[in-house]
Write a protein that binds this DNA or RNA. Sequence first.
DNA 1: TGTTGCATGTAAGGGGTTACATGATTGA
DNA 2: TCAATCATGTAACCCCTTACATGCAACA
Lengths: 188, 188
Amino acid sequence: MRLRHVLLVLIAERPHTGYDVTQRMRQTMSMIWSAHHSQIYPELSAMEADGLLTSEASAGPGPREKKTYAVTDAGRRELRTWLGSPYRPKAPKDELVLRAFAAASADPAELAAVYEEEAAQIQGRLARYAAIRAELEASGHTDDPTHPAFGHLLSLLHGIAVAEARLPWCLDTVRRLRAAADGGDLVT
Amino acid sequence: MRLRHVLLVLIAERPHTGYDVTQRMRQTMSMIWSAHHSQIYPELSAMEADGLLTSEASAGPGPREKKTYAVTDAGRRELRTWLGSPYRPKAPKDELVLRAFAAASADPAELAAVYEEEAAQIQGRLARYAAIRAELEASGHTDDPTHPAFGHLLSLLHGIAVAEARLPWCLDTVRRLRAAADGGDLVT
DNA sequence: TGTTGCATGTAAGGGGTTACATGATTGA
DNA sequence: TCAATCATGTAACCCCTTACATGCAACA
């Protein structure tokens, strides 16, 4: 039932269509969560059936009507209950870390290339995060705990902190793997 | 097909029973991956059927035989291919970050308690990581890129780096939420 | 005329969790 | 005698990804 909470969070900020939600998942929210429209549309229907959302239909561009969803009082209650409930962490399941764990079964040079590429990706991500952060803080709402920007900044700061920790780890991993590759070549 | 690779990595180190794998997932590997025995046993069977593993049966303590699996040449090839293949990152889906994102819909004091508890958990984890690190480095195999300990250290260093980044983030989040709660109480 | 964006849906299959089920040995 | 550890399996269900499917409007 996790997607359900993601949808509640987004629609609690302001009404969304299924398409809107899908776009946010692909853009600004992509560092936090992701879901395909094929999962989102049925879940929105189910949530309306369960009384957490209401929808208003209007003329759509395609053959079907466009539905804009808003959160009901029951939906807001569910959201608050979940936010205060105890957090049970799950195993991270990060494939990049799994590959590092398996380094002994890998070709060191090949594996090093994977972490070098990832380091480059992280640098790009950090630049984008910095831009979003500047925008958020310029909006002047980041100190207002009732404004969405408050929470957006908190999660963005997490993304920055983790990226700043992973970048040197990737570079160090590349260094260790390259040292291994060189040493291995010299000995062999 | 991700569990398949996890199992290949573990069994490539040395032969394992399904039970052994399950235990490792619950203990030292828990920071990297997790799976239940109900997922592991059928997958081991399927991998044997696909020629990635061989099994040797011996008398078991219960009503069934105990099966010890080892990796075949085909399994080792599959492992190397996967380790050199391009890495496609997935959205993290961290519920703790999602809750931060939703801070505007939460009771600040209640949410702060969640991050305070998490900070305590991370501190405990860091202590355990430090102990494992000392053990690994004392083994003297961490500079040998063909020894499992080499990769184990790499992934452990990732766990340490991320935990050391998340701890101050949690504390800062608590601080911001408490400030909001106090401010809110004073105004209301 | 062909692609991108808006907008919604279904179906098939892979992956993962929870619960059900059995039974011997060892230690409290 | 009660619980934990060793050891393996199945079944039901939920969650998620990939692919199939429709159709208008705007722009190149």
